[in-house]
Design a protein around this nucleic acid. Sequence first.
DNA 1: TCGGATT
Length: 354
Amino acid sequence: ITMETQVSNGPSGTSLPNGPVISTNGSTDDSKTNLIVNYLPQNMTQEEFKSLFGSIGEIESCKLVRDKITGQSLGYGFVNYVDPNDADKAINTLNGLKLQTKTIKVSYARPSSASIRDANLYVSGLPKTMSQKDMEQLFSQYGRIITSRILVDQVTAGISRGVGFIRFDKRNEAEEAIKGLNGQKPLGAAEPITVKFANNPSQKTGQALLTQLYQTAARRYTGPLHHQTQRFRLDNLLNASYGVKRFSPITIDSMTSLAGVNLTGPTGAGWCIFVYNLSPEADESVLWQLFGPFGAVTNVKVIRDFTTNKCKGFGFVTMTNYDEAAMAIASLNGYRLGDRVLQVSFKTSKQHKA
DNA sequence: TCGGATT
């Protein structure tokens, strides 16, 4: 039974226990007081959130939305004011406010409803030349777009990574967009795009979650002392690596002269490392174990054959900090893992050499 | 012997 059915015949202004005021048409009417706030800084706390929006006027309720497992902020929240005028004032004064690296967005929240859930799409294979506006234009034929984004390379600042997100107002609009656009080539594009429902933010591996937690904690509490500690630890690791057997001793300096390396840079958030000569049985955990000791690892991937599901002999590791990535490469290139000698280097952007 | 990408 839905809430609407329960209260639709009740008198105007019926209050449910602990609940909002229900209007005669059966829906809560907080459309003029309830706001959604997006693009909050990752480290903002519930208290800071409440304090910021409480400075505008009396708050009926507010909630910073956090990950169920880690408790980490998901970067957005809701504020319900008592007075609609305060909600209006909050939009006018706080929308577009720059907090740290983020520009927050403050707008009226859409009424909570099952039909607006799971309406978020993940799009990949986009032409690098396609702008956010182009993408919106392509998708807008299927419904009302609430938010959209194209992910860009962090260093070249602005080059599209060819992947993005589109949130529709309604789930059925998102479904239609998948039917209409998945596997299709946009106007004049060479490759078809992939359109599917986006993952939830908390669908990472346990290890990746731990890494993210660790990194967030490190960012929050780090200081000069911590940095020095980290350096000291890396020096120890480097010294320890002298004992590693190598079939091809190589220095970081000599690596930079290798073909393709000059094209290397951090993609997304970190430095991508190519690991070759993994066994067919290799899995992600071996990469975490090999690279984790050198510093912050955000992602590992073992490339497998689609049909056999066996490792194709190589994988990728993304590390946040250049120094740590360089140290891992210097230490693990030539490392003997079982009966194999690993080759480890920064990933090149070349397809492959003949 | 260099993928796929999850705000």
